Amino acid sequence: MADSGTRSSTVYHDAAKTLQGKITLDGVNVFYGPKQAIHDVSMVIPDRSVTAFIGPSGCGKSTILRTINRMNETIDIARTEGSIRIDGDEVNSKAVDPVILRARVGMVFQKPNPFPKSIYDNVAYGPRIHGLASGKRDLDAIVETSLKKAGLWDEVADRLDQPGTGLSGGQQQRLVIARAIAVSPEVILMDEPCSALDPIATAKIEELIDELRENYCIVIVTHSMAQAARVSQMTAFFHMGDLVEYGPTEDIFTNPHEPRTQDYITGRFG
């Protein structure tokens, strides 16, 4: 366990202390074998907003993101302690089926990963396996609605039978977002979703994120502080497995209370 005497407590800005949250983390610790990667993280993440996780490489931001839908369970030596709740429901309860959880909490990875299927079947895959459509007409509607929400429908409507892997990188990432939306999630986790994209594709994804936050709780890990400032309403700064500071994005970037946060956003390390 971490030596609490050697670690500073998290700085919460006033708005972060009073949030009504979609996701609540309470005393979360993550281990990879004997190595502790995350130290006693507690935070409340609001609904219908974008929360950005920032910090230098290896600081734990992707690790903590992956605890929210139990993706860390796919790593044999990973172990998570503490409480993670979505609308009060304990994520780590043995009664929770991880497959159902991951429909409720969708994830978009750094590199676009469309299935080797048609554009239509990429989006239809989740609704099919979860029984969300009663027939072809329902499925067609879900596919169209999801692609429209992902800002991709106009570009692919006349070629839905073509491979999703044949799209450009930015289109593939929007297809993956459409695939996540298709199972009606409540939360969308994004792990550096623009790092493999060019500036034009990145701008489209950022615009999409801003539109999606009206209906979803979005948590994004980003290595780009400029991106965090553009797309998020709340920002959490992580360093060496600690949640150092958490609050409204504008406050974190213009009036950080913790010296490590100030040093990071001014480029003194990272």
Rank of each mutant, 00 (worst) to 15 (best):
L208N: 12
F269E: 01
A78R: 03
V156N: 01
R260D: 05
G21L: 03
I77K: 12
T80S: 11
F115L: 14
L175W: 09
R268C: 01
R268N: 07
L212A: 02
I220Y: 01
P56G: 10
R128K: 05
A201T: 04
L152G: 07
I64K: 07
T67W: 01
V176G: 11
I64M: 12
D161E: 03
L25I: 05
Y246T: 10
D140V: 00
G21E: 15
P34H: 15
L152E: 00
Y12H: 13
I45D: 12
S93M: 04
T51C: 08
L197N: 07
R159M: 04
E155G: 01
G27M: 14
N113C: 15
E192H: 04
K136A: 15
K204H: 10
P259F: 11
G60P: 15
A16G: 13
V187C: 12
Y216F: 14
R66Q: 11
L65I: 10
R102S: 03
G270H: 06
G169N: 11
T266L: 01
I205C: 04
T67S: 14
D26G: 03
Y264S: 10
V28Y: 06
I252N: 02
L65R: 12
M107F: 09
A133F: 13
A236M: 05
D76I: 02
N72L: 15
V41P: 07
N72E: 14
A228T: 07
P112Y: 14
A180W: 00
Y246M: 06
Y120T: 06
A133Y: 11
P56W: 11
D158V: 07
K61V: 00
V105T: 12
S224P: 11
